[in-house]
Amino acid sequence: MKGWIYAVLGGGFIALQGAANARISADIGTWQAATITQFTGFVTALLIALAVGGGSFKELKRVKPLYLFGGAFAAAVIYSNVTAIQSVGLTLTVAAVLIAQLAMTFVIESRGWFGIAKQKMGLPQFIGIAMMIAGVIVLKS
């Protein structure tokens, strides 16, 4: 039950992030919103990292440098998310994001790109994505 609550809240926070970014962008601009939310998130995470201890930033030396830059995608993600929300609304934006996100994961995992262990992907994943696209068409009509 506790796991369910965390998962539902986690999804809610992701949706809230989109709505809040769109709202903040309307007032101060999209790049400003992206910079501020990422900056305040960074400071919060840094404070927690220092308080929790346990880890050290030296650990990052063992990571292949390319992967360290994953976070940088957030700039483009926030910009496209906010612009999409302002043009088609939150529901359609989230739907299109989820389809592309799952399709991307599907391709990477089924090919074993970026050192990810190859996973068996097949018909259910194709049907799942097709259903989601059908859902967007129904939603739009």
């Binding site: 994953g70 976070g71 995608f73 957030a74 483009a76 993600v77 926030i78 910009y79 496209s80 998310n81 612009t83 999409a84 043009s87 088609v88 359609l92 934006t93 989230v94 739907a95 299109a96 994001v97 989820l98 389809i99 592309a100 996100q101 799952l102 399709a103 991307m104 994961t105 990477i108 790109w113 970026f114 990810i116 967007v136």
Partner: peptide, 17 residues
């Protein structure tokens, strides 16, 4: 709007990996 959202979603998938 939908294409832009999908572009962002693909990047989210990549970023997660």
């Amino acid at each position: 709007g939908l294409l832009l959202a999908a572009f962002g979603g693909a990047l989210v998938g990549l970023q997660n990996i």
